[in-house]
Amino acid sequence: MVQILLGLLGVLLVYYLFYFIRDLAAERGNWGSGNAIVSGVIGLVTDAMDTLGIGSFAPTTMLLEMTKQLDNDRKLPGTLNVAHTVPVIIEAFIFITVVKVAPLTLFSLVIAAIVGSYVGSKTVSKLPEKKVQFYMGIALIITAGLMALKQLGLLDMLGTGNALTGLTGIKLIIGIVGNFILGALMTIGVGLYAPCMALVYMLGLNPLVAFPIMMASCAGLMPVAGVNFIKSGDYARKVSLAITIGGIIGVVIATRFVTGLNMDVLTWIVIAVVIYSGVTYIRKGLR
């Protein structure tokens, strides 16, 4: 089952690269503005952050604005999707092969997120975005608080050890439904990483197990979105290529850091990421 998932991601990568390389070749000499070195450094930093579970879109947006890499803000959504597709797929490949996850759990949750994003694009996108972001932020803050209490030994309701690498029975069903909802919520701007971390932790899985699940989920979504932007030409070619190259380097460096972490340290990092994301969602919801 894991091999099927890896094969699917491989097909999506080839599909994406075909259109990306073809477009760059067709528009040679017309790759737009931006500094390749600056954009490459942005990719290295933000995709390293992505590998740590923090996410890449928000910091990339901030850094592109600070360094004035885009000549037209209309190209921002396309640039984000195109630039980070290959690094995210590489993240998924690395974590799927390095981190032990029960095949049925991994495959089920990833497919649930992909299906959820498709359904969400048809239905959930009609929900009031600000309200969803606000309440998701509140939920993440509460979850992070419970996780912290457990780490401090003050709460036993979340179980002990969190050493599971797979889900069965009702927990597997909850995981599938939860990731389906998170995939749907991505269509209105609710990132999958932090909520997926919280979901995995609450179900008793090893914190590291969240990484292949959340990254494979996004790796299944982004190539399709990226190709759509490539076909329409609504992205910055030079900036996207540079971020992609820098991002690949950042992923390789950060992966070694994450997979070598002590579980207690990793859990506190997860808690910090969940709190950060919760505050971000609340601010978006109130803005």
Rank of each mutant, 00 (worst) to 15 (best):
T168Y: 06
R237K: 15
M263H: 02
I269N: 02
G7Q: 11
G233S: 11
A36H: 06
V258R: 06
F180E: 12
L17Y: 07
F93A: 13
N30D: 15
G247L: 07
V132I: 15
R237T: 03
Y276H: 11
F93Y: 12
G191E: 02
R28I: 11
M66D: 05
L9Q: 10
G166I: 02
T67L: 11
F134G: 02
F257T: 01
A254K: 03
S121R: 12
T105L: 08
T51E: 02
D50K: 02
V265C: 03
I213K: 10
D264K: 08
G161M: 07
V227C: 05
L8D: 06
L182F: 14
V252W: 00
V227Q: 06
G233N: 06
H84W: 03
I170N: 10
V274T: 14
T168E: 15
I42F: 04
S277W: 01
G40D: 13
M62K: 12
G233L: 08
A58G: 00
T165H: 14
T51V: 10
S232W: 02
M202I: 12
G204E: 13
M49T: 03
P195C: 06
L158N: 11
Y281G: 00
L80M: 13
D264I: 10
G175T: 09
V273D: 04
E91N: 15
G226W: 00
E91M: 15
Y235M: 03
I249E: 02
I170G: 03
P87A: 11
P195S: 12
A148Q: 04
F257N: 00
